[in-house]
Every structure is written in C-alpha cells, then in structure tokens.
Amino acid sequence: MATILTTGRRRAATRWSLAGLLALGTPLASPAQADETFDDAKLLLTNGVTSVEGASGGGLASWSTIAGRGTERAIGVSAHVTAIALPDYGWQSHGVSVGIHDRLELSYARQNFDTRKVGAALGLGHGFKFNQDIFSAKLRLAGDLVYGPQWLPAIAVGVQHKRNLDGAIVRAVGARSAQGTDFTLSASKLFLSRSVLVNATARLTKANQFGLLGFGGDKHGKHSLQVEGTLAYQLSRRLAVGGEYRTKPDNLGIAREDDALDMFVAWAPVRNLTVTGAYVDVGSIATFGGQRGGLVQLQLAF
C-alpha cells in the first residue's frame, strides 16, 4: 500500500446523518464505537476487593475506587462472599455492587456474625447470629487511582447506612440505636513508580464492632472520627500484598473495643475473579479478647 486515505469530515458527517435517518430512522450521530454498557475494561486489580461493609476497597478500609470493571463510559457490577474465622466467632458476609461510569458506586452487603459458644455464655443461645444490612453509596469526586498527575489521588466520599437486625439485643448491651450511618472520605493512589498503592480514609461513625453491636453507647453516643489506612505492593498484574489498619470507636461500657488490622494477598487468576486471603486481628469482641484469624474472599466482577 503506497497510499493512505484521509477524509473530509464534514461531508462524511452529513452523509452519516442522512444515512442514519433513512436506514435506521434515528437522526442522532453516533460515536466512533458504540459504547458497551458493560465494557469489563479496568486494569486488573484496580477495582479493589470488597471491604467488610460492601464498599470496594481493601478488606477493612473503604477506598476511593468504584466497584466493578466498568470504565468511565460504562457500568460495572460486582458480587462477593467473605468468610472470617476467629477463635470465638465466625463471620460471613456477602453482597453486590454496581459502579456507574467509574464515578458512583451503590452497594448492598449482609453481615452474619456467628457467636458460637460465646452466644451461650452471654445468654443469647449457642450459635446466636447477629445480622446486619448495609446500604452504601460512594461518589468519586476527583482524581484517578492510576492515571493523571501522581500528586492527585482518586478522592471519594461515601455514606454507609447500617441496619442491625437484632435491635432489642444490641440495646440490651448498651447501644443507643440499632441503626447508624457512617460517612467516609477517602483518597487512594497507585504510585506506579514504586508499584505501591496507598489509601487513607477518614470515617465518621457511631458503630460498635462495625454495627454488629449497635450504634453509640453509654461511654460515647455520637459520631466519632476514625481513620483507616492501606499500604499495598503490586508484585505482578495479578498479585498484590499489603496491610491495613482501622481504628474503631469504643462506645460500650461492658466491653472494650480494639482497632483492627489485616495483612492480605489479593490474586486475580482471571480478569473477573479476585481471590483474597488475609490474616485479621480485630482484638477484643464482647469481652472475648485476642480475636485473630483468617479471611477468605471471592469477588466476581464485570
């Protein structure tokens, strides 16, 4: 080929409109390629995993990422199941999220917290389960996790409305309410030059043990400012390791509440699946201390 074609765009555009009108009955001009509703086009692992509240992020921290693998002209969806085994408790949570234009995230998560033998000791009955529904929304205000200036992280605000389904019991242990709403502000950036992801989140919350023991207490009843941080290192496109720390309020007089931390490995064997394994330390829960154990999460995303 010794020649190449260049085109007079105005004439072509006129022709396009006419052809579209005649052949399809739609006079609207179309973009170069039709935008796919689900483009499944984020870079691997950049949708994060799912936090305990159902928002995309690390295991504990809510990042400023938007769930699903959709980019800014598409929609992404995500579903997850998480299991945590602790010495005296069991945790199972699951949920779904939708990410719209990599801008707005809406998510739902259900938490089921198995008290096992502790349930009998507390007079709730062996294997009593605390349940909680969480409805969340997150809006990315500015920046991007990967692209754009290195100094500008993705910045997002979030709201997480939590509805504990065991109101009578959490009030009996001293909580002021069975419902509460957290507000988050987070900044996340993948520093490619170092292959390091950094996240910092501020959270206003009243939740006792994430809300499983209700909201507010005899020691402190109002929202308090808590922080969560993540540091992760990307070993390959498919594999990242890291650690997180999350402070928690200490509102209840009957049981001390500790901060939580985790160390995780996130692996994307295929582009739509992220498998996360973590060591988790949540300290003392309802007077039973030293709650350290393992977390496994499967996340499917499109």
């Binding site: 190449i4 260049t6 085109t7 765009r9 170069a32």
Partner: peptide
C-alpha cells in the same frame, strides 16, 4: 497520519448499509 481516516471507520458502515 495527520488527517485521520477515522471518519471512514465511523461513517462507512452506515453509508454502506443505506
């Protein structure tokens, strides 16, 4: 290439269709 032939990729299918 300076002047892009992208227009062809966009426009041609519909024109052909007509």
């Amino acid at each position: 290439v300076l002047s892009v032939a992208l227009g062809i990729a966009i426009m041609a299918p519909s024109a052909v269709m007509a």
